[in-house]
Computed example of a mutant assay.
Amino acid sequence: MELKHVYIFLFDGYSDWEISYLTPELFKEEKISLKTFTINGAAITSMGGLKITPDLSLAQVKAEEVSVLVLPGGTAWEEHKIEGIDELVADLYQAGKTIAAICAATTYLGEKGYLDSVKHTSNDLDYLKSVAPAYKGEHNYQQALAVTAHQLITANGIAPIEFAVEIFKKLELHSEAAIEKWFQLFKNGIWSE
């Protein structure tokens, strides 16, 4: 069994609910190594007031080990306060690793040009264009809750369940049928044996 490494980037004010369906499922899987990191390794406080001590600092993240990088949303992206992750994101992108962004984190990918030539989504096209002035991917924008295209996963901020599903599929966490069963339970309250 090959261990897959999922790294979640955390920062003060990150939108904790956007990864709340994702992390429990990954944490309990033996084939997944789930790590959180901040720029300097210091504790942060989520938008919901959760005080989090990360596993690592950015300097301790080894790009070659990363299977999936998860970027949760938060107003810090909109205010362009996130600094220091450009090199890691570029290295992962060039290596073909999966980068998953939800809500305001999609504006970072848009601003840096990662969304210019692949299908993607965000909170809204006008939102993405206004927050990311350098964004040039309008022709690839999808009015959808979550989109996976090549190595990029993007999601609307109201779609943490769909976001989780796309990451589960990319990681081949379970069979398609098992993932759909999980989705139906958490999205629609339907459980089938």
Rank of each mutant, 00 (worst) to 15 (best):
V131M: 10
V131P: 13
A132H: 02
A132R: 03
A132T: 07
A132F: 01
A132L: 03
A132S: 12
P133V: 00
P133F: 00
P133G: 01
A134E: 14
A134M: 03
A134W: 02
Y135N: 01
Y135P: 06
Y135W: 04
Y135F: 12
Y135S: 05
K136M: 10
G137H: 01
G137P: 01
G137Y: 00
G137F: 01
G137K: 04
E138D: 12
E138M: 07
E138L: 02
E138C: 04
H139N: 13
H139Y: 04
N140I: 00
N140Q: 09
Y141M: 04
Y141F: 09
Y141D: 00
Q142G: 13
Q142A: 13
Q142E: 04
Q143I: 15
A144P: 14
A144Y: 11
L145A: 13
L145H: 11
L145F: 09
A146M: 02
A146T: 03
V147S: 06
V147M: 04
V147R: 05
V147C: 05
V147D: 03
V147W: 02
T148S: 08
A149S: 14
A149K: 10
H150N: 14
H150M: 11
H150Q: 15
Q151W: 07
L152M: 09
L152C: 02
L152K: 01
I153K: 04
T154F: 09
T154S: 14
T154E: 04
A155K: 04
A155M: 05
A155I: 05
A155T: 00
A155P: 12
A155R: 01
N156T: 03
N156W: 10
G157Y: 10
G157F: 10
G157H: 11
I158V: 15
I158Q: 14
I158F: 14
I158T: 15
I158H: 14
I158S: 15
A159T: 05
A159C: 09
P160G: 07
P160D: 08
P160M: 11
P160Y: 13
P160H: 09
I161H: 09
I161S: 12
I161E: 10
E162H: 12
E162A: 13
E162D: 15
E162P: 10
F163C: 00
F163E: 02
F163W: 07
F163G: 01
F163S: 05
F163L: 03
A164T: 13
A164D: 10
V165Q: 10
V165N: 07
V165C: 11
V165Y: 10
E166S: 12
E166K: 15
E166G: 04
E166A: 12
I167R: 05
F168K: 08
F168G: 02
F168N: 03
K169C: 00
K170P: 02
L171I: 08
L171F: 01
